Computed example of a mutant assay.
Amino acid sequence: MSDVDAAVSALREGALIHLPTETVYGLGARADDPEAVIKVFEAKGRPRFNPLIVHIGDIVLAEQIGVFDDRARALAKAFWPGPLTLVVPVRDAGLACDLARAGLDSVALRMPAHPMALDILRGFGGGVVAPSANRSGRPSPTTQADAYEETGAFVQASPDGGDCHVGVESTVVSLLDDARYLRAGAVTRAQVEAVIGPLASDQAEGHRSPGRLSLHYAPDAPVKINVDEPSASAAYLAFGPTNFTGPVIQLSARRDLHEAAANLFRALREADRLNPPVIEIAPMPEDGIGEAINDRIKRAAGFVG
């Protein structure tokens, strides 16, 4: 089996791969499967659920996942395949799960300019999240050997696509309203402006970009965390069995942190749709992926951000 075939097979099984790109080596997982995406956060030791870039192999899939306007199409035509990520409204959330988007109504999309990456993406046929393949806080890997040293224990396939010729993460541009330059990269601000005109301040949409501090999705109702005995009027996000007689939305009845992480954003939205005076959340363990869950619910409660 070739390296490309092995990577495609691993993605289909929900396993992790190393994805060689022109910017850095990515830690890849299928974007439509929250259980696969969770493995990325665990492998990286990532402290919170940042939005992740969804890598695609063609513009047709990109427009199935996200809503492209004339600006997005012009930038894609000018710089794709290449080191430019476009943040656009999500069209089909089933193709890029809540965890991949950090619960946002937008999605970050990129078509990498690397032959092996494109072969893998087109062979798989769906979106692939692929943040840099380093452990959190460490330098991004630009060779297969470095990627394997960082996160090789977590991947099922680690194809060698040679050295990355860009070596820094992609430029990120938001096109949700005014165009904004959210993260600098090999595609410069001047190059983007030459295609679509002047850019607005980047501050208003910074939370939409991978690699930046994010408040992410917060419900309309106030959120209280670490609640063992919910108040009578609350919508309660439970973790395990509960005797609460009000509205209960289970993160995981069997107290499985992976299941709770996969259900988190859906549960917050479901609770918010009940229009409760308050959303209360059961205490969550801090071990493993629990650290990211706790970071996320602290942000929803307004303690971080």
Rank of each mutant, 00 (worst) to 15 (best):
P222E: 05
P222Q: 13
V223E: 00
V223P: 00
V223C: 00
V223Q: 00
K224P: 00
I225Q: 00
I225L: 00
N226L: 07
N226Q: 03
N226Y: 05
V227Q: 05
V227E: 05
D228Q: 12
D228A: 12
E229K: 15
E229G: 02
E229F: 13
E229W: 09
E229Q: 14
S231I: 10
S231E: 11
A232S: 15
A232F: 08
A232Y: 14
A232Q: 15
A232K: 15
A234R: 10
A234F: 12
A234M: 14
A234N: 09
A235E: 10
A235R: 06
A235P: 05
A235C: 15
Y236T: 14
Y236D: 08
L237C: 14
L237R: 12
L237T: 12
A238P: 09
A238C: 05
A238D: 05
A238W: 04
G240P: 05
G240V: 01
G240S: 06
P241C: 02
P241I: 01
P241H: 11
T242W: 10
N243W: 02
N243H: 08
N243R: 13
N243L: 08
F244Q: 09
F244I: 07
F244Y: 15
F244A: 07
T245R: 13
G246V: 12
G246M: 06
G246S: 09
P247T: 15
P247Y: 08
P247W: 07
P247M: 06
V248G: 04
V248P: 04
V248Y: 06
V248S: 04
I249G: 03
I249A: 04
I249V: 13
I249H: 07
I249C: 00
Q250V: 02
L251G: 03
L251R: 03
L251V: 06
L251C: 01
L251P: 05
L251Q: 04
S252M: 01
S252P: 07
S252G: 04
S252F: 01
A253R: 12
A253Q: 13
R254D: 15
R254Y: 03
R254F: 06
R254I: 02
R255N: 06
R255P: 01
R255L: 07
D256F: 01
D256A: 01
D256G: 01
D256E: 10
D256C: 04
D256Y: 01
D256S: 07
L257Y: 03
L257S: 07
H258I: 07
H258R: 14
H258G: 11
H258K: 14
E259P: 02
E259D: 10
A260D: 06
A261N: 12
A262N: 05
N263D: 03
L264G: 07
L264A: 06
F265G: 06
F265S: 01
R266F: 10
R266A: 11
R266M: 08
A267P: 09
A267S: 15
A267T: 10
L268R: 06
R269Y: 13
R269P: 08
